[in-house]
Design a protein around this nucleic acid. Sequence first.
DNA 1: ATAGATTTGTTTATAAATCAACAAATAACG
DNA 2: CGTTATTTGTTGATTTATAAACAAATCTAT
Lengths: 182, 182
Amino acid sequence: MGKVDRRILKTQESLKNAVIELMMEKNFDDITIQELADRANVNRGTIYLHYQDKFDLLDQLIEIHINELGEMDAWACELNWVDALVPYFEYFEKNYLFFSTMLASKGTPSSFSTRLLASFMKGFQGEIDRESDRNAGLSDEVMLQYAGTAYVGVIEWWIRNGMPYPPHEMAKQVGALLERSL
Amino acid sequence: MGKVDRRILKTQESLKNAVIELMMEKNFDDITIQELADRANVNRGTIYLHYQDKFDLLDQLIEIHINELGEMDAWACELNWVDALVPYFEYFEKNYLFFSTMLASKGTPSSFSTRLLASFMKGFQGEIDRESDRNAGLSDEVMLQYAGTAYVGVIEWWIRNGMPYPPHEMAKQVGALLERSL
DNA sequence: ATAGATTTGTTTATAAATCAACAAATAACG
DNA sequence: CGTTATTTGTTGATTTATAAACAAATCTAT
């Protein structure tokens, strides 16, 4: 895709930061378009040039992160689980503000955790061990659901508790557990 | 004056921050217009919509601070010296990055210290004690030059040394000294 | 010194952001 | 309920920022 105009990127980043900031201060439903515009230092009308409404804005913000997480698969598919997880936890750490806000506000529209889970399960699909007979009698569906919810659950816990372990330590432990599960 | 378009303010602030940032990294003369544009995340041509060249940009940046310092006189003219100085040192502290960069780079065009000195001397003019005969035999010129250079000198020292005393302490000491000098 | 590469300052047309004004939808409240 | 106020989404005219291209000036090496 050709390069996007610099102004668009600036505006969108301001708005995305504004959403995160405001969501830390109040419920998403209580945020008004004017507030978003003020916080992002952008004209109210400008928002409508990019988004349908504030829900759309939040959706796109979520989508960006889901996509970025998805793209990390390509890099990781050659490594073992433990090493593959390191960049993920580093990503969570880097975008701590976003994830903690997203996972904290339970009333978030288009449930963030659900989308995260779906994304992870899709990423796990090719990784199930069918060469050995270790998983004979286990269905893909169950295994994916099992590993997916476990992974999301651990991330939620880690974020909510202020990231008590460094990313590489999390990768090591979670990687070992995932290896056993798939 | 009517309110300025939001885009103008954003662009100018980005550029002014960019100058300060780059001046901390390299000599002003070595900074290129393209670098400024990149750092400010602004098109190169946009710079010419606001400034003649990089010298003009720096000049206007300086002018803003000189003017803001000048406007503080109005607030302060009723107080004694010590109290009057507090907001000044708070201002220096708040804009630490600017002042330290400006006072550090000796090769700065349109010598910043000189302009600062002129501004202070002008502010001191009405403050010389002519009611008592304490200053009989002393010319305004000498007294202004004396107090002005002393004041600028102390500020330079304070900034260069990482502001070793809090603003109110500086105000107290410098205030006492200025009271004796004028 | 001079050939080659950067940097500069200007110009174009185009795209994006702005402001102000508006009616319609929602919320707040007596 | 009804009425006031707020928020929303859209519009149109205008301003600002953008990218790309250009010649001229300045820097850099050889």
